[in-house]
Structure formats: C-alpha cells, structure tokens
Design a protein around this nucleic acid. Structure first.
Length: 270
DNA sequence: TACTGTGTTAATAC
DNA sequence: AGTATTAACACAGT
C-alpha cells in the first residue's frame, strides 16, 4: 500500500522521464477517476500543458504544470508509470495520458480507489494536510506540542493525515515497534524522551525505506513492475506468530483504529 | 460463498 | 470541540 516512501519512489521514477513533456491526449477509462471536476473539464485543464516538475505532498503525486497542477493519489493499489505503448489488457487501467514524445503515462488501479485532481493552487491541500515528516517543519518542539495537546491513541494519531501527512498502516506499526510504544497508548501520556525517539525513528524509517524503493507486500510497483525492497527490513509488520526481532516473544496481530496491527506484547507494553 | 484488507471520507455517536 | 467508530468505495485473494 503506497505510503510516503512508496509515493516518493514513484515520484523519483517519473521525474526524469516526464519533465518538459506535454499531455497530448487523455483517456479516462474508469469514469470516476477524477475526484474534483467533471472529466471533460479536467481534461481541458491539462491538455497541452507542459509538466514543469513532479514532487510529493503527503501521499499525493503533484505534477506542476505551466498553469495549475495535477495531483494523483494511488490510494491502495494505484500504479503510475511511463510506458512505450499501451498494455494489451486495459482491464485495470483507470486512465492513460498520451505524451508528446509518443510515450504513455499509465494509471493502473485494481481497486479503482485512486484518482486525479486538477487544482489552480495548492492551498486547499496545504490547509487540509499536516506536516510532512521528511520536512523541516517536523521538529521536536512541534511534535511535543502537538502530541501533548491531543488525547488520542498513538496509531490513530499517526495515521491522521491532517496531523502528519504520509504515514499509513505499515510504517505506523514499524514506528511504534521501534520506540517500544503500544499503538493504543494515549498521546498526551508520552514522555519527552519517547517523543524524541518518535521524531528520530520516524525520519529514519521513512528515509531508509525510500533508499530501498519502499515496501512491496503485494501490489506496490513502480517504473514498469519494479518492486520495493524494504519488505526485507520490516521489523514487525506482517510478522504475526514470528519471534520479535528484539526480545524473541511472539508478534501478535490485533485491531487498533480499525486496522490490522502488528505488535510485540512484551516490548510494547500497554 | 463469505470474509478480509487497505486509504480516505462522510456520517454518526459519545 | 475533540475523539472514536462504522460504512462505503471495488476487487482480488483466501
């Protein structure tokens, strides 16, 4: 499931191949693939626009155009890649964009939850989404203040995109394990030392995962079917019934914030 | 056949 | 106001 490192990996894989190009033709196969506008209006906005930059905000891939911007969200199974031609089987292709170098930007999405937006400016997104954990704003003083002023289960809080933008189910479990905090711990009970660890480990885990091109459990692919290697580095996610890599106790799978949650009941005490 | 997982939003409840 | 819970979306996999 694409979270911050996976989205960054897709951005990195697209960037060198798409900058300076234009959308020559757009085909929206899945009719609900545009989140915020009528399909026709969306197409008219991006057609013949030059792509000036590609970057990430939270879990959004942003295509900066010479007027406005196009955002893509992969949700759970979205794959976005450049291809020389169209695939033979269009069954899971939600949309494709014919580029003016005769290649295609293809959006494949088995579950069809992913999609696109066109925006004139980024203010709406900036207002709605929280601090990016790889940005300069993600500091100890910010984290302390905002964790202690809330009374929420830690996993719930970390998953809240309006608080920190970019984390999902895999990395929240990894972060909680690495700082030895039970995911149901209430945020305002964390001490300063633990919050420091949270800051450091969040950055470490995300940057390390980006280095390994993210985590592929099942669906995540980038750049024509390449997979991320961070799965081999996961300490707790997906390790139900296996020994904890720290204390050898058995990892359990439970439900927190409505999500499947992996944890070590011995070193993440509650 | 029925259930699960997964990101996000909307609706609802406390 | 702040927080938690559930359903909905759509589909493959079990």
């Amino acid at each position: 499931m694409p979270e911050l490192p996976e989205v960054q990996t897709v951005v990195n894989s697209l960037k060198s191949k798409i900058i300076e190009l234009k959308f020559y033709k757009v085909e929206l196969i899945w009719k609900r693939v545009i989140y915020n506008l009528d399909n026709e209006v969306f197409v008219n906005h991006i057609l013949n626009k030059t792509i000036l930059d590609v970057y990430r905000i939270g879990k959004f891939i942003v295509f900066k155009l010479d007027k406005g911007m196009m955002l893509c969200h992969l949700r759970m199974t979205g794959r976005l890649f450049i291809n020389n031609g169209l695939p033979n089987n269009l069954k899971h292709i939600s949309a494709y964009f014919h580029l003016n170098n005769d290649k295609f930007l293809i959006f494949e999405d088995i579950r069809k939850f992913g999609g696109f937006m066109y925006l004139n400016n980024i203010d709406i997104i900036k207002k709605k989404y929280g601090v990016d954990p790889t940005s300069k704003q993600f500091t100890l003083s910010w984290l302390r203040k905002n964790i202690k002023s809330r009374s929420r289960q830690m996993k719930h809080l970390l998953l809240d995109q309006s608080f920190i933008s970019g984390l999902g189910n895999i990395y929240t479990d990894e972060i909680m394990w690495s700082i030895r905090v039970h995911p149901q711990t209430i945020s305002n009970t964390l001490n300063n030392e633990t919050i420091s660890k949270l800051l450091k480990e969040t950055k470490n885990i995300l940057l390390e995962s980006i280095k390994h091109h993210g985590t592929t459990i099942r669906d995540f692919k980038f750049d024509q079917m390449k997979t991320g290697r961070y799965k081999n580095k996961l300490k707790v996610y997906g390790r139900e019934k296996l020994p904890c890599k720290r204390c050898k106790n058995t990892i359990i799978k439970t439900k927190v914030a409505g999500r499947g949650t992996y944890l070590c009941p011995a070193c993440q005490s509650f």
